[in-house]
């Protein structure tokens, strides 16, 4: 009889490597700590941050030069875009996006979606990716197509801190 098990994915999710470092500094009161953002912006990336690198530089964000409509989408200031549940024993703290996030339809050139990154600035370039979700099999996004993360009861983004 065969037993199917699951191997670790090269794709990753959670905190970026940079945020691992800054959060650690915050916890111990050392310089170089985490800077709480005024908002989170959803960014689209061509490749994976990867489980190993956990890096926005590895993933490469979409560019306005390639998708003329590309813009990071705001989650909602001061955490308003998130529904954060109380800690649950056996699970942790589950938090999801409250509102539907819609990326403007792609223009100019088809894009590849390999990751969603949560940024600390409106961009469309620069700033920091604080946490992310890789798509193990990147999606082809044709011209004229929206990337949509639903909100509410069937959220597009789900995180657990544990």
């Amino acid at each position: 009889m065969l037993r199917r098990s699951f191997l670790a994915f090269a794709a990753g999710n959670g905190l970026t490597a940079q945020t691992d470092g800054s959060i650690t500094n915050t916890l111990i009161g050392k310089a170089g700590g985490y800077t709480s953002p005024t908002n989170n912006w959803v960014g689209c990336f061509t490749g994976n941050f990867t489980a190993a690198a956990k890096s926005a530089a590895t993933a490469v964000e979409w560019l306005v030069a390639n998708d003329g409509a590309y813009a990071r989408q705001a989650m909602g200031a001061s955490g308003a875009g998130w529904t954060v549940n109380a800690y649950l024993s056996g699970t942790g703290v589950v938090w999801t996006n409250t509102n539907t996030i819609t990326q403007p339809a792609v223009t100019l050139n088809a894009q590849t979606l390999g990751a969603i990154g949560l940024m600390d600035s409106v961009g469309p370039t620069g700033g920091n990716a604080n946490f992310f979700i890789d798509v193990a099999s990147p999606l082809s996004v044709a011209v004229g197509v929206n990337v949509i993360l639903s909100g509410g009861g069937s959220p597009g983004l789900t995180f657990t801190t544990y």
Binding site: I133, V145, V147, Y162
Partner: peptide
């Protein structure tokens, strides 16, 4: 189950592509 020590985060997405 959550780890008995440390701090970790995991995340997942449900992504829909729609022709505008």
């Amino acid at each position: 189950a959550p780890r008995a020590s440390g701090l970790r985060m995991k995340g997942g997405a449900h992504i829909v592509l729609v022709e505008e």
